[in-house]
Amino acid sequence: MTTDWHLDPGLLEQYETGVLGPSRIMAVEAHLLACAGCRALIPADDAWLADSWSAVYDDIHAPRVGSIQRLLTRAGLPEHRFRLLTATPTLRWSWVLATAAVLMLAVAAARVGADSSVPIAQAFLVLAPILPVIAVSGAYGPPADPMHEITGTTPAAGPALVLWRAVSVIGVAVLMATVAAVLLPGPGWYAAAWLLPALLLCTGTLALATVLSLPVAAGILGGLWITGVLAAASDERAVASMFGPTAQLAYLVSAVLAAAVLILRRRRFDLGENR
């Protein structure tokens, strides 16, 4: 595709400054597409070219996005949140801890024969609500996070960061516990009965953490839960009633109350301080 007509620098300058008539603009553009020689006439802006190229270079050498991140991004999680959640190694360890503990419980329950399964299943019910609390207590603060001093100075620190981390670890812990609970022998409702107590213990821990430090709050509530269950453990009917409909409703109401306390006192949620 060659024509006898070619562009000259003056015409190109007029084109770039936008003073050409419409039909001549179209002529210049049609010719530019067809003629490599005239394309090369357009003066190169070296600084701009280098900038543009470095942006392209960075883009094609960017680290590949993993499938899990793609899934979470599709679900609406922004990339910087993902970085925030995966950048803390201690956080990963608390995930692994929760996961391993739950799986071990499930294996233990499955190993024991069907006839003696009821006490084992009850042990699961007692321990499963504690696991997310352990995960939460390891999610933030001086004992769990060696970078805490630095994290504490960033604008991201405080309630928002605690809640993001807590949600991520609770998510993993609950998922694993659910899998274990479904594999568990025993009455079907056992598989779901621990969820509301776990919710109460988690929100309660966070609410209590507005007064005490996070691990202490987790320790107090977890201890209360264990002593309460152990005290009732002698009587089989007492344990059953602890997970019965009335008790579940009470757990739900208390969890809502704890969430309300958490929201009201969120400004006191300065977990870096030892109180």
Binding site: Y15, E16, G18, I25, E29, L32, R39, A40, I42, P43, A44, D45, W48, L49, S52, W53, V56, Y57, I60
Partner: peptide, 19 residues
């Protein structure tokens, strides 16, 4: 090769896109 292609074509693409 991508760098050469970029340096050869980015200029006129820019001029035309700016319109």
């Amino acid at each position: 090769a991508l760098r050469l292609l970029h340096h050869r074509h980015a200029g006129w693409l820019r001029a035309r896109l700016r319109r």
